[in-house]
C-alpha cells in the first residue's frame, strides 16, 4: 500500500489573523507518527478513517461551517491538506493565494460560496486561484464544472487544479491551449 504524503518542511510558524484575534499555527511538519500511520493522508482518511494531522485539524477548527474563511501563511497549507479536509468532512474547500498568504474557504458537499463577482474581486486584490476540492473518490470527481471554468477565466493564470478526497488531482486550463 503506497501512501503519498505532501510535505513542506519550512520550519517556521506563522500567525493566522481571524477577526480581531491572532492564532498561531505551525508550518507543515511530518511527525514520525505520520510517516507510518497515514495520519493526515487523504487516501488513508477515506479508506481507513485515519484522523487529520494536528495542523489540518487546527485548520478545520477554524473553518467550522459552510462559508467559513481563514487566512493562513502560505507555507502552512497545501492542496493535499484541503483534500484531507474534504476526505474528513465531505465538503468542498477552495484555496486562493496572494504572496505569502492563503485564503481558505469551506464549502459544502456541492459548492463553495464564490460567484463570478467575488472571484473578480479576489483577482483584483492579487489572488491566484490555487485550486479546490470535489468530494468523492472516483475520477468523475476530478472533472471541473461549468462554473470552475468561468472562475478560472477571471484570474490571471492559465491553470488550476481539482483534488478529490483521495488526494488525486486534475489540472484544468483556460480554453484555446491546444
Amino acid at each position: 500500500m503506497n501512501f503519498s504524503i505532501a510535505v513542506d518542511k519550512s520550519g517556521n510558524g506563522g500567525i493566522i489573523k481571524i477577526g480581531s484575534g491572532d492564532v498561531s499555527i505551525s508550518a507543515i511538519e511530518q511527525p514520525i507518527e505520520q510517516q507510518h500511520t497515514g495520519k493526515g493522508n487523504p487516501n488513508a482518511i477515506m479508506t481507513f478513517d485515519m484522523p487529520l494531522n494536528n495542523r489540518q485539524q487546527k485548520l478545520l477548527d477554524d473553518l467550522p461551517e459552510f462559508d467559513s474563511r481563514v487566512t493562513v501563511p502560505k507555507k502552512s497549507v497545501n492542496m493535499s491538506d484541503l483534500s484531507a479536509l474534504t476526505a474528513k468532512t465531505g465538503d468542498e474547500f477552495a484555496m486562493f493565494t496572494k504572496g505569502e498568504e492563503r485564503l481558505i474557504i469551506r464549502g459544502n458537499s456541492k459548492k463553495v460560496n464564490i460567484n463570478i463577482d467575488e472571484a473578480k474581486a479576489l483577482s483584483e486584490k492579487g489572488y491566484k486561484w490555487s485550486g479546490h476540492t470535489h468530494p468523492g473518490v472516483d475520477d468523475n470527481c476530478l472533472m471541473p464544472s461549468k462554473g470552475d471554468k468561468d472562475i478560472l477565466a477571471v484570474f490571471d493564470q492559465e491553470t488550476s487544479v481539482v483534488y478529490n478526497s483521495k488526494g488525486n488531482y486534475l489540472t484544468f486550463v483556460k480554453e484555446d491551449q491546444l
Binding site: I116, S145, G147, D148
Partner: peptide, 10 residues
C-alpha cells in the same frame, strides 16, 4: 456556469 463555484454541476 455564471454562478461560479456555487454551481459545481460537472
Amino acid at each position: 456556469g455564471k454562478m461560479g463555484l456555487l454551481d459545481e454541476t460537472p
